[in-house]
């Protein structure tokens, strides 16, 4: 990981020095253990603060839109796929970006790790797929593989799909037996069980919209839940309004979601919001053979019509 950090710093310092980019969007070290902070570097000096580790979980594609500068961006597999989405949706132009691709072997789930300890984690470091975690009273060595974020365990696009330069050699892609086992489990439930499952899932939602705001897809100038004249959705804690938010937000991501997991990472209430979007990822894969964010020259599934599109649902 340290070598990746060094490599990223060298590349970014060079880009800024040579004036190839105006700014770099990357991660810097967080102020608390197991955290990172999306940051901007405009000078070679600032580029020395850039880091890379298993906590660089959020999706930096979220920070690229509505800017005039030429941007260098540090992008792991999922970030790169969301950059492709942005290009397709005319939110950024390829020419305005310099993409430093980072082959990724998964990010760690800080919640799973915190759950192992009684006290606050005071130190976190990693080396060769081992994690070293300390609290005031305990010390543990963990296998990174066992503590990956859920979306990373089913990821089949760890290597950036679009880049100008790679910060390391590509990693081997995972062969996943049953990528959608979690979705199938819900699909096999009865309607009542499904209903109860999702009710329980969202019952703690505080509508802070961290999931939406962490999501690179959610760039609408005014989100439907923020429409006020007239208002579209109730703004209280009524479970039907909360559900409407999650349901429609998910549907807006149909055929676009890369399952980067930023929504879940951002949620302060630990809500498994991907339970909504995963179904759409599976459907777009199975119905339209479509994986979003792989090719900037292909139009997305919900954006095109083919005479042979499956139409079994229409009577």
């Amino acid at each position: 990981m340290d070598s990746l950090t060094d490599k990223i710093r060298t590349l970014c310092t060079g880009l800024l020095k040579d004036g190839k980019v105006d700014m770099i969007v990357g991660f810097k070290k967080g102020t608390i253990p197991m955290s990172s902070c999306p940051c901007v570097a405009r000078t070679p000096e600032q580029a020395k603060e850039l880091i890379w580790d298993s906590n660089c979980t959020l999706n930096l594609a979220n920070y690229l839109t509505n800017r005039k500068e030429k941007i260098g961006v540090v992008a792991k597999g999922c970030d790169s796929r969301n950059i492709v989405n942005h290009i397709i949706e005319n939110k950024v132009t390829r020419e305005n970006l310099y993409i430093i691709g980072v082959p990724c072997d998964g990010m760690v789930d800080k919640r799973k790790i915190r759950a192992l300890f009684n006290d606050d984690i005071t130190l976190f470091s990693e080396e060769n797929n081992k994690l070293f975690v300390e609290t005031a009273s305990e010390k543990k060595e963990l296998d990174k593989q066992d503590f990956l974020k859920n979306n990373c365990t089913t990821c089949i696009h760890r290597n950036p799909v679009i880049y100008d330069e790679l910060a390391a050699d590509p990693v081997e892609e995972q062969k996943i037996e049953n990528r959608f086992a979690d979705v199938i489990k819900i699909e096999n439930m009865s309607s009542d069980d499904k209903w109860n499952y999702f009710n329980d899932l969202i019952k703690d939602c505080i509508r802070c919209y961290a999931c939406r705001n962490a999501c690179p897809l959610c760039y609408c100038p005014t989100c439907f839940v923020d429409e006020s004249n007239p208002q579209w959705v109730g703004k209280g804690q009524d479970i039907n309004d909360v559900r409407t938010f999650h349901l429609l937000r998910a549907y807006h991501c149909a055929g676009r979601c890369t399952d980067c997991g930023a929504c879940e990472e951002a949620c302060p209430m630990d809500i498994h919001v991907r339970a909504f979007t995963r179904k759409l990822v599976k459907d777009s894969c199975e119905i339209f053979d479509w994986e979003p964010g792989l090719d900037p020259n292909k139009r997305p599934a919900l954006d095109t019509f083919n005479p042979d599109d499956p139409d079994g649902f229409i009577k």
């Binding site: 902070c37 999306p38 940051c39 901007v40 979220n62 920070y63 505080i206 509508r207 802070c208 919209y209 961290a210 939406r212 705001n213 962490a214 951002a266 302060p268």
Partner: peptide, 16 residues
Amino acid sequence: EDLSFSCINCGTCTFV
């Protein structure tokens, strides 16, 4: 400007 760069403007801080 730099302090706010990373902010995604969710309401988490205000709600907690």
